[in-house]
Design a protein around this nucleic acid. Sequence first.
DNA 1: CTGAAAGCGCTTACAG
DNA 2: CTGAAAGCGCTTACAG
Lengths: 353, 353
Amino acid sequence: VAKTTIRDIAAAAGVSRQTVSRVLNERPDVARQTRERVWKVIEESGYRPSDIARSLARRRSLALGVVIAGLEYVGPSRTLRGIAGQAESLGYTLLFKDLPSLDTNRVQPLLDSLLAWEVDGLVWAVPEVGSNRQWLQGQLPRLPVPVIFLTMEARHDLSVVSVDNYAGGRLATAHLLEQGYRKVGHIAGPLNWWEARQRKAGWQDTLAEAGISVVDGAWDEGDWSAASGSQAFCRLLERYPAMEAVFVANDQMALGLLQVAYQKGIRVPRDLAVVGFDDIPEAAHYWPPLTTVDQRQEALGEMAVQELVRIIEAHRQNDAAKPRAIVLEPRLVIRESSRALPPEACGESSGGG
Amino acid sequence: VAKTTIRDIAAAAGVSRQTVSRVLNERPDVARQTRERVWKVIEESGYRPSDIARSLARRRSLALGVVIAGLEYVGPSRTLRGIAGQAESLGYTLLFKDLPSLDTNRVQPLLDSLLAWEVDGLVWAVPEVGSNRQWLQGQLPRLPVPVIFLTMEARHDLSVVSVDNYAGGRLATAHLLEQGYRKVGHIAGPLNWWEARQRKAGWQDTLAEAGISVVDGAWDEGDWSAASGSQAFCRLLERYPAMEAVFVANDQMALGLLQVAYQKGIRVPRDLAVVGFDDIPEAAHYWPPLTTVDQRQEALGEMAVQELVRIIEAHRQNDAAKPRAIVLEPRLVIRESSRALPPEACGESSGGG
DNA sequence: CTGAAAGCGCTTACAG
DNA sequence: CTGAAAGCGCTTACAG
C-alpha cells in the first residue's frame, strides 16, 4: 500500500509535480483549467501532502513547541487550551511536552527533542520557581528559535506574557478594605514561586497605603494544596486571632481554610471574610461561594501564541522583533464569601443552564 | 547563520555523511577510533540531527498524535500527563490537538493535520458522547495508522483502553450497602455519555442483586457541573425524601450536593451518606471529605500509549496486531462522607507534608 | 569497517 | 502559465 504522493497526482493530472505544488499552495499563476483538473484528482485520491516533507523543503515547520508544568492544576490546563486553540487557528501544529516536576535536570532532553523537530518557536509555560528560570536563560542565546515565557517576572531581554499577580493581590485586598474590614490576613503560596511573592506584595502594599500597619504574624505560607491551606489557617488563627478577613493566594487553599472554618464554627463571611485566587470552576460552589480573582489563563495562552507567531513572522522578514512584556489584568469575581448575604438553598436560580 | 548539518560534521571529522549517520544511530559497524572522533566533533559543535529529515528518510516519524477533549476537567488532564510521560519514555514525540467542543464537525481538520504530519499512531482521548464515535469509526478504515480509543465501549474491531465505569458504580453502591444503607439514590451524569450510563447501571444492578427494588424516582440527572449537582439533588429530595445515601456520578456534582445539604441542615453522613466519582484533588478537602472512586486516569493514558506502540511495532513487522480491549479497574477511596466519624479540625495530621 | 549513489516528498529559484 | 533541475537533511541498500 504505497502512499499517494505529489508524483502520483502529477502523473494522473498530466502535469509536473511543480504545478501540483502550485495548486496545493494556492498560487495564482496556474491556468484555471489546470487548477481545476488538479484539484479534482487530489480530491478523488484523498491525497494529503506531507507536512514533514514540506517542512524540510520550506525550512520552516509551522510547528510550535510547548513545555508545560503543573497540569494537575486547573490554571495550566486552561492555558494549554488557549495555546492549542490559538495555534490551531493560526495554522501551527503543537508539539507537546509535560514537565513532570519542576526539576530542571529533566528539561534538556525535552528541549532537545523539540528543537530536533525544528519547531519555529517555543512556548515556555513553566512557572518561575526558585531559580529554575536562570538555567533556561543560560540556554537562550544558543536557542535557534524565539521563546515566549508565560507568567514570570518581566525582563527587558525576554518576551514574556504574564498575569499581573501583584495587581490581583491588590484587587483582592482592596475589595476587603472596601467591605469595611481592616484586619486582613494573608495565606501565601510557596514563596519561592514568583506568583506567590507578587500576590503577597499586592496584599501588603494595599494595606500599607490604606494606613494599616501589617501585624507581624498576619500571614502564613502554604504550598497551594487544600491541605496546606487548612494547616496555614490553623497556625494563622493562633497568631492573629483578631483577623476579620483573609486573602488566600489560591482557591484550593481557600477550600482547605473553609473546611477548617466550618469545623471550628467560624462563619464565613460573618466572622471571617475570605477571598481566593484563580476562580477554579468549583469556587462558585464552595460554601459559601468564593470571591476570587480570575487570572484569565486561557487568554494568557492565546496571547502567548499570538505574540510568538508575531515574532516568528518578524524574524522571517529579518526584522528582529524586540522582546516585550505583555501583561494581562486579572479580574475580581465577587461572591458570598466576602460579603454578608447568605446564599440560598434550592432557590430558583437566575437562569443558569 | 547556517544550520549545522550532518554534512558539516562529516567534513569536520573527515568521514562520509554515511558514517556520521552510523555513529548517530549507534550502529556497531564503526571503528572505535572513528566513532570517538565523530562523537567529539558532534559534541563540540552542538549538532542536533533533524528529526524532520530523519522522519522523511526513515518513513517513520516516531511521533504520536493525541486528540483530547474536556481538558477543563481534572480527569482528561491526568490522562494527558500519563500519555505524555509514557510517550516520552518510549521515545515518541506528541502532536497535540484539543477538541474545544464535542462537535464532530471540527474533528476532520484536526485529524488531517495529524496525518499530514505522518504520525505513527493516534490516541483518541475524546469521551464517547451521543453518536460521536460513529463518525470516527466510519473514517477508521481509511486511516493509514493505528488508533487507540480511550474510555469507550469495548468493541471487537477497535483497540480500546478504558476504565470499568460499571465496576466503579458497583463499588460505590456496594460500599453504601455495606454501611447498612438500603435507600440509595443516584445522581447520574448526562446519560448521552457512555460513562454516565455505565455508572448508573452499576448502581442499579448492585441494588437489584441485593434484593432492593429501585424506587421509581430514586435518581436524577446532572451535566457533571457542581451547579447541576445542586439542582438534581433538590429535585431528588422532593421525589425521594426517604433516601439515606446517594451515589453521585462525579465529584463536582457531589460538591454541589454537599453545598445544598449544608444549607438545608442535612448532615453528611449522619443524615445522608454520599459517594462521588473521580477522586479530584479537592475531594479530600470537601466538608466532609468525600468518599469517591479513583479512575486512575493517569494509568489509563500510560496504558493507551503502551498498547498503541505495541501495535505500531507489530505493524512494522507485518504482524497485524489484533485489536483488544484493556480494562482498568477503578478503586474505592473511603473518606468521611460515607461513614459516621466526624473529621477533626486543626488536629495533628498523620504526617502530611 | 567505510563510501558513492539514490531516495524520502516536497518547494524554490530559474528558464522559457 | 508551465516544467527540468537542484536541494532540504537525513537513511537505506549496495559495493568494496
